[in-house]
């Protein structure tokens, strides 16, 4: 497991363009809803003398005034933009994952990086999208069923006079739901990795294969996931420490520094995810060394037969 984590981190570090590209794509998507927000806010805050307060610290009354201000509250389109961006992100995740496994899988081979990424994205897009739908539905159903069962079993704790028991019950229910959803989503990762290795076409069978692999190697699969979750938590803590100990971003320099830190955090998160895919791929190779390799070369199209 530790070898896989190391291998994943090495793989991501050896392909720095990969997390950079993924970060850039999602940053671009995020700009779609945020640019109208900036425009609307700047129209109100820019000329306002009161807005200077927020250069010193966040002031909730200024925020309340901003939200109710007629000019700034016309943010329906940014909200629609956010929903659209989330939809595009969800769909494009199949493409991004395809590109990621392709680049990680053929990292040592010659050829331009972008060609490899787009070739992988295109080749697996349709299959990964179908896999994602199957996994999402399964995860949702399973997490719902498990959380209902756990909440039912723990209901005496919820009514306990010992107050922490109520939090414990809620935390255990949430943890059970998260672990279940995590299991089904990790199975999605391994199913996609195996599809990329084996060139499978039947997505339900592929997903069951991923699920089977996950269940057979539960400790290692969750071990890898937990290792990356811990690294992500460390990243979040580092950010919170920065936020808690840095004065409000009042000058352009401070705003730029804050933006850089934030983008570094988002990039770090993308990097860790890419590394995790690398680690999962390494684990799959280690546990299924005899699997049939996928055909090499450029894809004729996402829906063409292998």
């Amino acid at each position: 497991m530790i070898a896989s984590v190391r291998a994943g981190l090495r793989a991501a570090a050896s392909q720095p363009k990969l997390p950079l590209l993924v970060w850039g794509w999602y940053a671009l998507l995020a700009l779609v809803p945020i640019l109208p927000v900036f425009s609307a806010w700047n129209a109100v805050l820019g000329p306002s003398t009161e807005a200077q307060k927020i250069l010193r610290r966040f002031d909730i009354s200024v925020y309340a005034d901003l939200v109710q201000d007629s000019a700034a509250s016309a943010m329906g389109s940014p909200l629609r933009g956010l929903i659209a961006a989330l939809a595009v992100a969800a769909i494009s995740s199949a493409f991004v994952f395809g590109g990621t496994v392709e680049v990680l899988g053929r990292g040592g081979e010659p050829g331009p990086f972008l060609q490899r990424f787009f070739s992988g994205g295109g080749r697996y897009f349709g299959r990964f999208l179908r896999l994602a739908l199957v996994a999402a539905a399964s995860a949702l159903l399973a997490a719902g069923a498990v959380s209902a069962a756990v909440a039912g079993a723990l209901s005496p704790l919820g009514g306990s006079e010992w107050e922490p028991a109520r939090y414990l019950a809620a935390a255990l229910t949430a943890a059970a739901a998260l672990a279940t959803a995590g299991l089904f989503l990790l199975a999605l990762d391994y199913a996609r990795i195996q599809v990329a290795r084996d060139g499978s076409r039947g997505m339900l069978k592929a997903y069951l294969g991923g699920l089977g692999f996950t269940l057979r190697n539960l400790a290692s699969v969750f071990g890898v996931a937990i290792a990356f979750a811990l690294m992500l938590a460390a990243l979040a803590l580092a950010y919170l420490a920065y936020e808690a100990n840095t004065p409000a971003a009042g000058s352009w320099g401070a705003i730029a520094a804050l933006s850089i830190v934030m983008q570094a955090i988002v990039f770090g998160r993308v990097f860790l995810r890419v590394a995790m895919v690398g680690a999962e791929r390494h684990l799959d190779l280690a546990r299924r060394p005899a699997a049939r390799p996928a055909p090499a070369g450029p894809s004729p199209g996402p829906t063409s037969p292998a």
């Binding site: 995020a30 945020i34 807005a51």
Partner: peptide, 24 residues
């Protein structure tokens, strides 16, 4: 600056939302 300061934070939040979905 005020709008930039707050927008930078919102961009951060939205990026996390989008990344959470996109890296699924």
């Amino acid at each position: 600056r005020p709008a930039a300061s707050w927008t930078a934070r919102w961009l951060f939040v939205i990026q996390h939302l989008i990344t959470a979905v996109g890296l699924m």
